[in-house]
């Protein structure tokens, strides 16, 4: 190995290149700031000068109403977070199972593949809202022994069933993207089919699909709000609905929207960061 060079000094040409790059970077930042200020300013003036602004301002952006309704909506959002976390864990388990079922080869596994395919076809085709209506009201009515009858349980079950169909396809793509030679190498070491899947294929598949999965998680955060249609689960949207019904001022909905954004933005940035770290240059980056 070559010894590390310790007395390296950048040459004049390298110093000049670096100062040029710094000047360029400063210029880009200045242009970005100026154009952002301009666009926001124009949009702001247009909205505020519109004829209906007075009324919209009162019914949607009432500060006192916002402060009043904030605690209730925030408490509702906590419900969304809980729904999201529990559902996300269940989704990973269900969808991984489906994906493994669908990628298993051989005649013995045919029923598994068939079951997986039918499941994905059905739940990818059904609108989520419809599933929530059907299961949220129909599920409790079934009165199955051993299963809770609460709207919360059946609402979460709807999310899990719907999302698992999508996420299973993401996992399946990940599993199939791992080259066959990796499986061969695992088997050559004496690992069984299942061990190869567990220690060789799935870890690689998981890494590849994580950015896509995190994207689905952001989406799940919002869609957890759809459970509000069942009426009995007090999440952020349902709480805003209740607050709004008191005096027909819609500000609580804006509060709920604001809180949802606060919840999803960190998640979205985390996804971008991870995707970049994985080497997808430029993927969703801000600058």
């Amino acid at each position: 190995m070559r010894p590390a060079v310790t007395d390296w000094q950048p040459s004049a040409i390298q110093l000049e290149r670096e100062s040029y790059r710094r000047r360029q970077a400063a210029r880009s930042t200045a242009i970005a700031a100026a154009s952002t200020a301009l666009v926001l300013g124009v949009v702001g003036v247009l909205v505020v000068s519109s004829p209906g602004w007075e009324r919209v301002h009162e019914t949607y952006f009432d500060w006192d109403k916002a402060v009043d309704s904030f605690p209730a909506v925030l408490a509702g959002l906590w419900m969304n977070v809980k729904i999201m976390v529990v559902s996300a864990i269940a989704i990973v388990v269900v969808s991984l199972t489906i994906a493994v079922m669908r990628t298993t080869r051989g005649p013995i596994a045919f029923p598994l593949r068939l079951l997986g395919t039918v499941y994905v076809d059905v739940f990818r085709g059904l609108p989520l809202l419809l599933v929530i209506f059907l299961l949220g009201f129909g599920g409790p009515a079934l009165d199955l022994s051993g299963l809770p009858r609460s709207a919360l349980f059946w609402g979460c079950a709807s999310l899990v069933l719907s999302y698992s169909a999508y996420v299973a396809e993401v996992f399946r793509a990940g599993i199939e993207s791992v080259h066959q030679s990796q499986r061969l190498a695992g088997r050559a070491l004496g690992l069984t089919y299942a061990q190869t899947l567990r220690h060789v294929v799935l870890p690689q598949a998981w890494r590849r699909v994580l950015p896509a999965l995190m994207n689905d998680l952001v989406s799940l955060q919002k869609d957890s709000g759809l459970i509000a249609v069942l009426g009995t689960v007090i999440d952020a949207i349902r709480a805003a609905q209740i607050e709004t019904a008191k005096d027909f001022n819609y500000t609580p909905y804006v509060v709920a929207g604001f809180l949802f954004i606060c919840l999803t933005v960190p998640m979205a940035r985390l996804t971008d960061w991870y995707a970049r770290k994985q080497g997808f240059a430029g993927a969703g980056s801000l600058m």
Binding site: A188, L189, T192, P203
Partner: peptide, 22 residues
């Protein structure tokens, strides 16, 4: 049992096939 037989042999692949995640 093929897995058992393979565990008694060592195979080095032409294209190495190392596991990139480990």
């Amino acid at each position: 049992n093929g897995d058992e037989v393979r565990s008694r042999m060592g195979l080095v692949f032409q294209s190495y096939n190392l596991f990139p995640h480990l």
